[in-house]
């Protein structure tokens, strides 16, 4: 590393300087592009209804108005509550199941596991439209249609492939020797899991929980078909934007509110978020 750092500037100093400037200029340029919508959301949301118009849309608000935020919060509050009630149990259950599955599929391979695992994984890629009609029917026949537990079940089931995948890849790194040593001491299936696997699973759980949290929080299709009368935050936001004589300031404030929980998670735990992202590409 040090050798490289020393050798590079020695090459062509002026050229090097210009290319550094170009790199930073490009990065700043793209950053501005990426943040443009954020600027717009924030600026618009703090404007009073009268101030939202074409000629001044890119300018700062003349006077800070919190009306839009108040209205947006009133309209979105039930959705935010529902989404939290959904996300917490669905995430925890699917993480626990994923951990057990990953443990079995990496350390207790049974005959046929190599065929069953890809078949399970296929479930995370399917377009959910392909299961939507029977799903509605099934949920109603077991009395779970349009209920929070029903939607939790749906998210747990369709979250299983990704949580299993992440844990399986994570546990694959755990050396078998570690488990064998404990097994000699007489630990069984659960003993190994509790003593060896679980204590080192924290990073895995963080990755899975973040991933599931953002996925379920952001999901729309199931929310709009399976749980219409307990509207989730995405459905509430779409309802807000699909109606009204376009009150853009309220919509922007609402969009921001709907994004806050996942953004907080992302900013605080971004490192793990990226790991979850990469795990989605199967091999990691």
């Amino acid at each position: 590393m040090t050798a490289t750092a020393a050798s590079v500037p020695a090459r062509r100093p002026t050229n090097r300087l210009w290319s550094r400037i170009l790199v930073y200029a490009l990065l700043v340029f793209f950053s501005v592009l990426f943040l443009l919508p954020v600027y717009m959301v924030i600026v618009t949301s703090f404007k009073g209804t009268a101030e939202v118009n074409i000629s001044t849309m890119w300018q700062f608000p003349q006077a800070l108005s919190f009306d839009a935020w108040r209205t947006a919060y009133e309209r979105l509050a039930p959705g935010l509550t529902n989404s939290f009630l959904l996300v917490v149990p669905a995430t925890v259950i699917s993480a626990v199941l994923g951990s057990l599955n990953g443990y079995v599929l990496s350390k207790w391979k049974f005959p046929g596991a190599n065929i069953i695992f890809p078949l399970m994984l296929f479930g995370m890629f399917i377009p959910y439209q392909a299961i939507l009609i029977p799903l509605v029917q099934f949920m109603s026949s077991v009395g779970l249609f349009n209920s929070l537990p029903g939607l939790i079940l749906v998210h747990v089931v369709y979250g299983l492939p990704i949580t299993t995948l992440i844990f399986r890849n994570y546990y694959a790194e755990v050396p078998d020797e570690l488990l064998e040593a404990a097994a000699i001491d007489g630990a069984g299936f659960f003993g190994l899991y509790m003593k060896i696997v679980l204590p080192i699973s924290l990073p895995g759980f963080v990755v899975v929980i973040i991933w599931q949290f953002t996925q379920i929080w952001n999901e729309f299709l199931f929310a709009v078909t399976v749980a219409q009368n307990t509207p989730m935050v995405t459905v509430a936001l779409q309802n807000l934007s699909g109606s009204q004589i376009v009150q853009w300031n309220v919509q922007m404030a609402a969009a921001f509110l709907a994004a806050v929980p996942t953004l907080i998670v992302y900013v605080l735990l971004g490192r793990y978020f990226i790991r979850g992202l990469l795990a989605g590409s199967v091999k990691g």
Partner: peptide, 28 residues
């Protein structure tokens, strides 16, 4: 009273939602 309104003029989106609910055996 629970005011369950689905956005979309002339009920274009509400009808889709209502159908899923009636099929789901959970009418409003």
């Amino acid at each position: 009273v629970i005011n369950a309104a689905v956005a979309g003029g002339s009920g274009v989106n509400a009808r889709a939602v209502l159908t899923t609910r009636m099929l789901g055996g959970d009418p409003p």
